[in-house]
Write a protein that binds this DNA or RNA. Structure first.
Lengths: 357, 357
DNA sequence: TGTTAGCACTCTGAGCGAAAGAGTGCTAAC
DNA sequence: GTTAGCACTCTTTCGCTCAGAGTGCTAACA
């Protein structure tokens, strides 16, 4: 038995019908569609075949057919027609993303917000991983006699800072010296590379005058670098799930919310997805998301750093629309954080990208 | 008719019974309690009186009594007995709050997490408002030829930074000069005070050499200062509401989540609450929270800055337990961010408090 | 005079069965 | 190969009854 033209057509009709109604699709309903010119009985035969082939299931004998994960996969890969975003929406995306375009974090948060509004699903966005970002400055500033602030600036403009409680007394000169020596040592190196270096030994050789401070500074420096690698997760539209009949059961809604509000775990899921546009459906996800579908896409910052943005919802989602919204937003974000007029320079000029407060 | 001893006792029994069961309380149930030695009929008479006085309501004729908002208020003010936190919980709070005590934001986030776990309610925490914090440094760092990073450090160690896109070319010397002049001008002034000054004029008089840069810098500087005033909101335990029978109705759960996930609006509610321990019940809240109760308390940072932490849940909450957990956590937080061993100095030494990236 | 027992009454919620509706699968005819 | 027809299945909804919980009132009691 093979998937001939007619079976595909029927399958497509069933999937798209089910996506909009969330009700099992019966043969009579299908036969009424203008694009399908077959009697209910014929359709029933085909549906029976499709079920045997694993594309459809049956909640119970006297119910219509429901697409299986396999059917959604086929639908997404071959059957679905990409929808073009209405001009109004495009305009809105552009407008709203450019409103606070000088703050990466804020813009990304807005992007997530926008996405949940436009898809009526739960949306999320993660900021780029900076393990390959290069260090640009290291700076110690006095706060009071016991504590200083350490700030590390990356070439892409990202700033991370921490408070450090000093064990030994320090002078402003100490701090300036330390800032200079460390900047000199690490400038131009990637964050991940520095994290594997033996920093303590550097203090011994280069900075004997400061070795008394090393005990306070080294662990904090490492911690701050690690903080630089943290990926922020923004989510929006939690309450959208209540609009979906699949979550009218409170237990299911609870389950979903629990999974999705576990930031650490969920960030992990997102970080480990395929690059580019990625759609995973049902089984293709981990156990606790097996009733969901995720659609994600990447955005670029300075043409290098890669963040990610997407939605999570029921397998029955409007893949065409959702995909085009996500693509449009990520493209827009990438353009927003694009290098501006590199013009004559060979080395790329980093665009404004910086952290939140 | 007045609230005599017996009526109070009955009312207290009804409220505490309803809090644990969420079922309307009948006269027979009450008469079985060891602390109430009255026949159901007598209790019925008293309940009828209490209803007339506005302390009880009746879902329908043949149901037990339910406390009114007025009853909860009385309960909280007079009838409830404060519970003492078990030693295990105290220990856990202390342990978990001190794990990352060098990062205010992170600690506050952990506190919210802890609170939702211990109360099984939705918890929240806001970071302190810094409008009265004093500025300590202002620093411009070059990023690339078009952009610089501006960072403002407060006396309490809080750092805020922004990327600035420059309209005119700049030199490192320009930045250093600008940093010095601005630090000199604003050091020791409160953020809110600086925000009302006429910064632009300062550029004209003090910094003529830099006036070409002022156009880029002044608006960004103001924006960054405003960012310094932003209060961060952390929430946790959203999915706890599904455990409560009052939210077994999906529409109610949706409503609740929508109200509470509106960060801006909800932050506003929190910022405008009374200082110290504040409990608001039903009507006492805004319209969209009229079925809820909020309990909040303040914590202090450096004995000055004040943040806030609390829970939101149904009016039927264990006020005693909740209050003692919140108090214990806020006290603990205040101690964590306390000035450490000021010893000989007159001027208070600021403890480590700094921002999240 | 306050308290209590008794009883009729009310309202809710669970349980049950009937009936409607949707849809299938099979058979037989086209 | 397609279709009409029909018996059959399963779910959902509706109405009904009945048990249970609780009240309010009255009358008796201490």
């Amino acid at each position: 038995m093979d998937l001939n033209e007619r079976k595909l057509k029927i399958l497509q009709a069933i999937v798209s019908d089910f996506i909009t109604t969330s009700e099992p699709v019966g043969s009579r309903t299908l036969s009424k569609r203008p694009d399908i010119d077959l009697s209910p009985a014929t359709i029933r035969n085909e549906m029976s075949d499709l079920e045997e082939m694993g594309y459809l299931t049956h909640p119970h004998t006297s119910a219509g057919r429901v697409p299986s994960d396999k059917a959604y996969r086929l639908y997404v890969d071959q059957l679905m027609q990409g929808s073009d975003l209405p001009e109004v929406n495009k305009q809105e995306i552009t407008d709203r993303l450019h409103k606070d375009a000088d703050e990466l974090d804020q813009t990304v948060e807005h992007a997530a917000q926008l996405l949940s509004e436009m898809t009526n699903l739960v949306s999320f966005a993660i900021t780029p991983n900076r393990s390959e970002s290069k260090i640009s400055y290291i700076n110690f500033l006095p706060v009071d006699e016991n504590s200083v602030v350490l700030m590390i600036v990356c070439e892409d403009g990202k700033v991370t800072n921490s408070a450090i409680r000093m064990n030994a007394p320090y002078t402003e000169e100490n701090l300036t010296l330390m800032s200079k020596v460390m900047t000199h040592n690490f400038k131009g190196k990637a964050v991940s590379a520095v994290l594997t270096e033996n920093i303590a030994s550097m203090f011994e050789s280069d900075m004997q005058a400061l070795s008394g401070l090393a005990g306070s500074v080294v662990p904090s420096f490492m911690k701050t670098l690690e903080k630089m690698l943290n990926v922020d997760l923004y989510m929006d539209g939690y309450s959208n799930i209540f609009r979906l009949p699949e979550y009218s059961d409170v237990a299911k809604a609870q389950n979903f919310l629990e999974t999705v509000t576990n930031k650490e775990q969920f960030t992990n899921v997102l970080v480990n997805r395929d690059n580019g546009l990625a759609i995973t459906i049902g089984d293709e996800n981990s156990e606790d998301l097996k009733d969901c579908a995720l659609v994600t896409a990447d955005y670029k910052v300075n043409g290098k750093l890669v963040g990610r943005l997407g939605v999570i919802g029921p397998k029955r989602m409007k893949y065409g629309e959702v995909t085009s919204v996500i693509k449009y937003i990520t493209d827009n974000l990438s353009r927003t954080f694009e290098i501006e007029a590199p013009a004559e320079e060979a080395e790329p000029v980093e665009a404004a990208d910086n952290d939140e407060q």
